[in-house]
Amino acid sequence: MRYVINAMRMNLRRAAQYRASFWMQTLAQLVMTFGDLWAMLLLAERFGGMAHWSLHEVMFFFGPMQIAFAITEMINRGFGHITTLIRMGSLDTMLTRPRGIAAQVILSELDPRRIGSVAVGLTALIVATRELGVCWTLPNILLILWGMAGAIALMMGLFMLEAVVCLFSVQSVEIVNVFTYGGRQTCQYPLDLYPQWLRITFTFVIPVGLCLQYPICHILGKSLGGVEARAWVWLSPLAGPFFLGLMWLLWRWGLRHYRSTGS
């Protein structure tokens, strides 16, 4: 635990060293997320809402998804940069240390700049809450936090999956990015806007639907793709930790078969 705290402090100090750059990059994150929100606003205006969802309902999906993804990237940048770690041989150094590899990879780079995306996501959520008159009762608050926690675990699992692929081939980075960044892009809208095969993929294979979207539907009192969101939404975010657990086993397996890129 001392190691964890120490590493976090060093990461923050590193970010604080280049102050202008830090704020610029935070602003860049903010602009990027705002770009997505802007696209959403334009679409809703052009088509008068989105199918059977109103703009503010869609924003209610957008906010938590962006926040969860940003938090994932904040704590999980190390896995996102695994190719660099492999190419530079840093991963090999880590393997010699008497600490958990996953912990070392994660703590090798924390990324506080994602706070920019969190800010936009939070704004969207607040605006949507006001417009829709959502009542933040204690169960609702707990449910959304629990859903976001599930989604964060799920996306950490996805980054881990990418890392496993990278253990075997540092070439195919861009392809695996499809799952993470493509997933964020897709799941910032309600899934029932998409054709069935996409909806099923993002509900059961990469269960963002189970983690985040059904709980959100429960809070809004709406159904998603004809499925009523009842009390079972309290259990469905478990899909996230379950997915992460599977990926962690895969990562362990990958590491046992890992051959360094050599020097």
Partner: peptide
């Protein structure tokens, strides 16, 4: 993804 979304809208 984008085309799927636009086709829904």
């Amino acid at each position: 993804m984008l085309v799927a979304l636009y086709s829904a809208l």
